[in-house]
Simulated assay, not measured.
Amino acid sequence: MTDFKVRPAEEKDRLGVSILLDTAFGGPSEARLVADLRASGAMALELIAEHDGSCFGYVAFSHMRSPEGLWALSPVAVQQARQGQGIGGELIRQGLDLARRAGATAVIVVGDSQYYRRFGFSLKAAENLSTPFAREATMLYPIVPGSGGMRGALKYPEAFFPE
C-alpha cells in the first residue's frame, strides 16, 4: 500500500496509537513511554501514517535533557501487515525533516544500524557520546554542522527509565 498520508498526531489519535504500540511491541511499555513523554512535556513531535482514518504507523521524537538541542527518535512502529512498504521510512524521513526545521541540533536513535544508516544515522557520529543504552546500537543523525562527533553524556527524558 502506497496510498497513505503522514500527518502530525492529534489527541483523537491517542487510543489508536496506544493500540498500535501495544500490538507492535507485544505489551504496554512503549505506549506507556509515549504517554509519559507527553505528560512530562518532553515530546517534541509525533507523526502518524493513516489511510481512510485508520492509523497504522507512528513515530515519536522527544527532547533530550542533554546535550542541549538533541532529539531522540523513539518509538517507531508500523502494523505488521503493512511492514515492508516504506511506511516506517517515510515517517522517519518526514520526522527528521521537521526536526531540522524546528532547530534540533541532531537526532539520536538506539536501534539496528543497518536500518537506520539509510536515513543518515551514524555510529561514528555518536562515538564520543556516553549513553545509558547499548553503545553498538546508539547512532546520531547530525543536523547542525559539527554536531557529528560531539562529546557529552546523553541524558534522556525520565520517561525512558520507568520505576
Rank of each mutant, 00 (worst) to 15 (best):
T2F: 15
T2W: 15
D3C: 13
F4M: 12
K5A: 04
V6K: 01
R7G: 01
R7K: 05
A9G: 06
A9D: 08
R14I: 06
G16T: 11
V17K: 07
S18L: 08
T23P: 11
T23Y: 13
A24I: 12
F25D: 11
G26Y: 13
S29Y: 13
E30D: 13
R32Q: 10
L33N: 08
V34L: 10
A35D: 10
S40G: 10
E46H: 07
L47N: 11
L47A: 03
A49G: 11
S54Q: 05
C55F: 07
G57P: 09
G57K: 06
Y58E: 13
V59L: 10
H63V: 03
M64A: 12
M64P: 01
S66L: 09
P67Q: 02
G69N: 02
L70V: 13
W71Q: 10
S74E: 10
P75S: 10
V76W: 14
A77S: 12
Q79C: 01
A81M: 05
A81K: 03
R82M: 11
Q83R: 09
G84F: 06
G84S: 03
Q85V: 01
G86D: 03
E90K: 10
L91Q: 13
L91F: 03
L91D: 12
L91T: 10
Q94W: 14
D97W: 14
R100T: 13
A102K: 09
G103Q: 11
A106L: 00
V107L: 11
I108V: 15
I108P: 05
V109N: 12
V110M: 14
D112F: 13
Y115A: 13
F119W: 11
L123V: 02
A126V: 02
S130Q: 06
T131N: 05
A134H: 06
R135D: 06
T138N: 04
T138L: 04
M139H: 02
I143L: 07
V144M: 07
V144G: 00
P145M: 13
G146S: 10
G146H: 00
S147K: 05
M150A: 00
A159C: 06
P162Q: 03
E163C: 08
